[in-house]
Write a protein that binds this DNA or RNA. Sequence first.
DNA 1: CAGATAACCTGCGTGC
DNA 2: TGCACGCAGGTTATCT
Length: 267
Amino acid sequence: MPELPEVEVIRRTLAPHVTGKRITEVTVGRAHLRRPLPHGFGSALTGRTIESLDRKGKFLLFHLAPAGTWLVHLGMSGSLAIRRAGAFEHDHVRVGLGGNLDLVYNDPRRFGWMNFVQTGVPPELAALGPDPFEPAFTFEVFCSCCQRRRPIRNLLTDQTAIAGIGNIYASEILFRARVRPGKASRRLSRAERRRVYEAIAQVLGEAIRLGGTSVANFRDGEGRPGFFQMRLQVYGRQGQRCLRCGCAIRRRVLAGRSAFYCPGCQR
DNA sequence: CAGATAACCTGCGTGC
DNA sequence: TGCACGCAGGTTATCT
């Protein structure tokens, strides 16, 4: 589910409901997600106020007062949503915000995780590359990532190079840029690098505008699906026709994960 | 350095 | 109907 656009959609839909709210209670169902919750997690959050909700790459960052940061990674199937009542299977953490308002973390596969730090930046962010929407992510910075032999698809999904791109958008970005996923990044011409760089912002931006991609069951912070799945050009479409040139879309495994491309449009 | 593989989990679709 | 298998938006340890 959650790559940069989905996390950003969750951030935007959650923010108006949570900013300024005081955390009155934390209920933990399963303390062991991908990693165990940090020691004293519930009591650390309780009593603090959510000042703002931020995002870097695929990480959500709740900035709290008194000082503290609550970090959430949604893994493959995690979601955060505002709920007024009701409990569902795979609800693991429930954060009471006063009244009958709860912020609920649900995650069937439990690949997500959380952390809390009182001071400084959570250690998870230390190794992250620039987020594509930060000013720091310039064309020259992107070019400097393209020095090596590794396939461009693997570069795009490497969170230490660029933070936020996952498997769906890597394929969609490379289709828009008309570059094959297996091409060695250092063999991309300057024009190809320029097209990939621009496709990153275009594809991610359009996905955010459409509320994210709901394959399986992505929902935003208010429980609504996204619509970018209707715009997918190659992801999950192996064997079907390219909507642009009519060629059959291909699937290829790179670094253990599917990459999709059109052999006619991407050279 | 970087690829392949497996592992962590649950759920869904497919084919027999 | 039941069951095995492959596959899924992510990350990470280990081996080559």
